[in-house]
């Protein structure tokens, strides 16, 4: 990695409340550019909400988030790629039709970008089957391609390995390593930390809406 890593994402005492439910209660966190973070913790610990706040999908109830030097996340949407737990794809459309539409949302109209991305994630660009008939592994790969369509600096991935066969999971994990090496910052939620063991730079543990240090976990 290049020069000493600088801070790219800062959470300052972020609280997120949904009606009667509080998902985050005072998260403070600094993340450095060019690293791959594994986000770990039990279900309901607030991991998904953490990513949704970063993606600009949920507004913090209290506290501030800043990213790439701004706290107005609407201005940096082009630098964020987000892969949610659901596929965020249209089941009735083929891989290329899906990617074309999402590329259009970013003002990208280059034909070859979609095809090469489909290849990058290990799918066949000639495939015309609708996505609804894909296996979970293929769907996750395409979902990753969708998140990468605008070549973002920061990638947020929610359970990229869930229900994926071991071979696909390994391939996705090594692809994530390559993306990190190309200078991107990655936040990956997973239950299978062993898959990321080789490529993760750091781990972030969450528990009951808070970040916990390894000592606190015991």
């Amino acid at each position: 990695m290049a020069a000493p890593a600088h801070t790219i994402i800062t959470f300052n005492n972020v609280v997120k409340q949904f009606g009667r439910f509080i998902a985050l209660r005072g998260v403070s966190l600094d993340l450095s550019a060019g690293k791959l973070y594994a986000i770990l913790g039990e279900n309901g610990a607030g991991k998904t909400t953490l990513l949704r706040v970063l993606a600009g999908l949920a507004q913090p109830t209290r506290g501030t988030v800043s990213m790439l030097g701004t706290s107005d996340l609407r201005t940096v949407t082009r630098e964020i790629g987000y892969m949610a737990h659901p596929s965020m794809l249209y089941d009735e459309l083929s891989a290329r039709e899906n990617l074309h539409y999402f590329a259009a949302l970013y003002g990208i109209s280059k034909e070859d970008r979609c095809a090469s991305l489909i290849q990058t994630v290990g799918l066949d660009p000639a495939l015309s089957r609708p996505v609804g008939q894909y296996s979970q592994g293929m769907r996750q790969r395409l979902s990753l391609a969708r998140a990468l369509i605008h070549d973002p600096k920061i990638l947020l991935l929610d359970e990229p390995f869930s229900n994926v066969d071991v071979r696909s999971a390994r391939e996705i994990a090594s692809l994530l390593g390559q993306l990190r090496d190309s200078g991107k910052t990655l936040l990956v939620i997973t239950h299978q930390s062993d898959l990321l063991a080789e490529v993760a730079n750091d781990q972030v543990w969450m528990e009951r809406g808070r970040i916990v240090t390894p000592e606190e976990r015991e």
Binding site: Q17, G19, R20, F21, I22, G44, E207, R208, G209
Partner: peptide, 10 residues
């Protein structure tokens, strides 16, 4: 209640 539900879990 939101805070409490977080305390109760796990």
């Amino acid at each position: 209640e939101g805070l409490e539900s977080l305390e109760m879990r796990s």
